[in-house]
Design a protein around this nucleic acid. Sequence first.
DNA 1: CACCGTGTTCCGTAATACGCAACGGAGGTT
DNA 2: AACCTCCGTTGCGTATTACGGAACACGGTG
Lengths: 260, 260
Amino acid sequence: MSNSEVARDKTLVQSVDRAVAVLELLARNGEAGITEIAAELGVHKSSASRLVHTLQARELVEQEGERGPFRIGIGMLRFAGAVTGQLDYVRVGGPVCTELADRLGETVNIAVLDGDVALNVSQARGSSAVAAQNWVGQRTPLHATSSGKVLLAAAPADEQERLLSGELESCAPRTITDPVKLRYVLRRTAEDGFATCMEELEAGLHAVAVPVFGSRGDVVAAISAAGPAYRLSQKRMPEIVEELRVASRDLSVRMGHPVL
Amino acid sequence: MSNSEVARDKTLVQSVDRAVAVLELLARNGEAGITEIAAELGVHKSSASRLVHTLQARELVEQEGERGPFRIGIGMLRFAGAVTGQLDYVRVGGPVCTELADRLGETVNIAVLDGDVALNVSQARGSSAVAAQNWVGQRTPLHATSSGKVLLAAAPADEQERLLSGELESCAPRTITDPVKLRYVLRRTAEDGFATCMEELEAGLHAVAVPVFGSRGDVVAAISAAGPAYRLSQKRMPEIVEELRVASRDLSVRMGHPVL
DNA sequence: CACCGTGTTCCGTAATACGCAACGGAGGTT
DNA sequence: AACCTCCGTTGCGTATTACGGAACACGGTG
């Protein structure tokens, strides 16, 4: 499902594209051996071996011990630093996330709009986090997450319609797949200034998000809290929304945007 | 100075190697145009263009607006998440850095030993940071940094000697380049449990570091504070060392290592 | 309006990365 | 302990692939 040759763009460099595919595979799987990588990319073992070793020479890939599977390497941090240097949300969002996560005891995320998906740029786990999953860098569907709804609700109308006209994939039993219903929810989101997500992405997972405003009053990101359904009850939402709003304002200020 | 062809390893994939060089260049410079990249790598503009666009298609590179210079792209966060998921120092070090940076008002770094250099894996800027430089992912010489001295002092004797026998590059007027003197300093570092760096890396820059211990009592990282010489005076050192020690213990605990 | 500096596109060439197959090493199994 | 199997690496020959050259397109500027 990764990259079937849908008429490869002639201007793209094949081996580089494959190398990035290797990195993406490792990021997704955590680790993988040469044979597995070769199979996944649909290339010969020798090719995979050479690609991996080239990346290893640059420390973008490393292997457990002498003869183990490969992982993403430490050298990648060089670039992570470079991207966080530009993306204010990341640099400044970390502390904000951490603080709020400590206070709520739930996992807190900051996400930005990236094309047709919500991209998590920062995260802090709550003290009572059950599964310690890392969402940083993960893309999540806009219609099935609280952050996504907030970002989508703030997007220009044509952008919104373009997405609504596409297929709304069902991620969990309660995912909103009806465009009409989603349109209504987005309107409510814009009015209320927050969005919830009740088992729409994953069974048993609730979340709630509020927008983060930029200097011109536009929505530049969303900050959300997520946790197990039994803990993030409907009743607790107003309290959490208020906490999120405080964090959101804090974030705006730290990013140098005048408070409204 | 980047990559002169010192008999390119035949098993390496040239274009992938070049692509990574592009990324490293962007990480270093912040941004660059096609022509500049081509010149720096010593390749033709057309080659550089293709490499960059391949990376852009995967969102590892993005450009400012429609016709601007190129930067490291958001897609890189995918990998950043993957590496931080494995490297405990990064995941857990962030909050610790932030807290200490807030308290001291100086920039705090966590570094690990990576071959012959100290690799900064986490950073938080102090409130009064003058230059907001990002050191995450940066490699710094072991003999000219406080973290480096701490890490080196804890390294096995043969490793230490190997490095001392190599050339000690002079980074600033006061860099220690004499192996005999450095050997003495390292012994002192091991005894004292901290190391300083007074304008040895950069004129006007002082720093001080303490070790971070792993579960078996071995040194796994170093945590350091850095700032302008006039602010990090010799007199203030004991106080800062004490703060660093607290943070170091905190870090060890958070990483699940039993306190000694 | 012509000029310079961008970056992109087309094209022919040969360098380059590919797939193949054989090799070498570890671990596990009988 | 010898066998076997699985994994990764190395040489090798081929043709795919990426490269460099030059011309082109696009803006900004004098």
